[in-house]
Design a protein around this nucleic acid. Sequence first.
DNA 1: GCACTGACCGTTTTT
DNA 2: CGGTCAGTGC
Length: 670
Amino acid sequence: MSHDLNAAQREAVNTLSGPLLVLAGAGTGKTRVVIYRIAKLIKSGVPAQRILAVTFTNKAANEMRQRTTALLGRRRGQQRPEISTFHSLCVRVLRRHITVLGYPKRFAIYDRADQESVARATLREIKVPGETLRPSDFLYFISRWKMASVRPRKATSLAGTDKEHLAAVAYRRYQNNLKSKGAVDFDDLLLLTEELFEKYPDARRAEADRFDHLLIDEYQDTNGSQYRIIKRLAIGHRNLCVVGDDDQSIYGWRGAEITHILRFERDWPRATVVRLEENYRSTAAILERANQLILFNKNRHDKVLRAARHGGEPPRILQFKDETAEAEGIVQDLKKRLAQRGTVPRDFAILFRTNEQPRAFEMVLRKENLPYVLVGGMSFYDRKEVRDLLAYLKVLANPHDEPSLLRIINTPPRGIGQATVKRLLDLAVSNGKSLWSTLGSPAARAEAGDKAARSIGQFRATIESFRSRVGHDSLSRLVSELIQKTGYTSELSRIYTDPTEREARMASVEEIVNAVANYEKQAQKPTLSGYLEEAALGDRDDTTEKDSQLARNAIALMTLHSAKGLEFPQVYLVGLEEGILPHHRSVAADGDAIDEERRLCYVGVTRARDRLTLSLALTRKKWGKARDSQPSRFLYEFTGQAELLKAKKASAQTRLKATTRRKSRSPARR
DNA sequence: GCACTGACCGTTTTT
DNA sequence: CGGTCAGTGC
């Protein structure tokens, strides 16, 4: 089996017990090693279900599942290794033990929109005006604290600014509000698992005992909670294999700490360390530049990627007048290459730092009639229609789910306006009851007025009649009838007069009906709450959506963040300007934010197999106004001209000179 | 209660 | 510039 692996890969695959750190550079066959290692473990007699592999994204988990199945073969009744994301792992743990923490067994998982709704209500309760602390800022603070396992009490003492102090006070209240609704947010999934393991050693032991081997993918992206959870799960058997690349840590802004991978050997004494340094993906010409660039980072494991593929075209740097010229120039260049024999649209990727960049490219691509996919972008579950219908389902599952109830109580409009809702909410709060219970009370009828009261009555009757059918009728039937009964689609065609938009909205509705039907088909025991959990975790099998997106023969447009783990024969990395890459927020922040931007750039560069083109615009419109752009510092580093940049920094005059000189000749011509 | 208007704000991202 | 949201007039 392992004849097609190199020596380092073989060592990583064959080191079956004890702590193992696999430092896998870009394009060194990391996923392959993980999968082969799982297969090897099983072959050596470890029962498959005693192996747990953890990934960060569903995409990665799906891919790993597929490739493991392909390698092991599909035999009936055969046990499979457990492959899951951190979050769904925690959900399963919490389903078994959460009652000891004072949450209901069937706790709800609140997503970002639900969180905002609770945050808004919380801030209203303690009478914080919107301009003092916005719900989004508030959530940002809490999220930071949670990822560092900071509880409300500690947050109060940590708070420096007034805003933070206010957020710390509201934090406790927010947690209580969630808890009283029997709900947890995404960060809680990790935080509560950690708390459970800390306070209840028996629960920790029971969970740790389920597995003999633990594999963690993308270890460089672990945040504090995840780090501690892993530790507590693996401490008994020490059969912990972590795989990652410190040079590709790009999620620091959401709590990932690169120190975790850097200090693995100290955490786990006598750990084996394997370095995968042979890159099979990119040509030497591309890799040479990547290596040069990443050398500018200080905090990293020492390693140098060696190219298995010699030679290759040196990367080009193209410079344009503005972002429109950039898009046109790049697309023209791409078109020329596409005309070459054996080249197809799928070979190309255009990578960028921010989400506003693809707009110009989309326009040109559409004009040129070239097939493209914007990967990422708005996800299925972000679409308004999907959220609405999901809210209906959530209310059917639990009518006391207030964020969902508020979302649908007047969607489509049925005469229960803002004022009425506000009054009913106040009534509910003063009675200490849920909004749903309040809706049926005589007091509510008096509060709402005749017309609204009638609407409320009808709404309640509809919900109740569907609720009584949950568990009896099929889910997909329930959903389509719900859409009918509420007049949801007729409302859509009323609001959206533009035919293309209307069609898109209708398609979303259709998609959720399909998603439910799909779930019903493949789940062993389909239930409403089961579907909602899958939806909340994004855990659905989206082979239908994203994979077909990529499989479609189209040029891929995506952010550097979503490009991680992928590769393309030809890559255009665009917008290499100060303020974009590196992003201005990272430039302004002190500390090592720039290093993360450099890693991001490195990730982009190492996506390319054969050809790499970097580009920049000299002016760029920002919020409607054109502003001058400076070439990214990474361009200088990458081409070995960092000295020039230092000189530029020393004096504004030289800076001007250097830039004008740059204009006349392309900055990268060696 | 609803639709329309204008002020405001600003972009890495996943679960 | 484009999207979101609160406020206004009907």
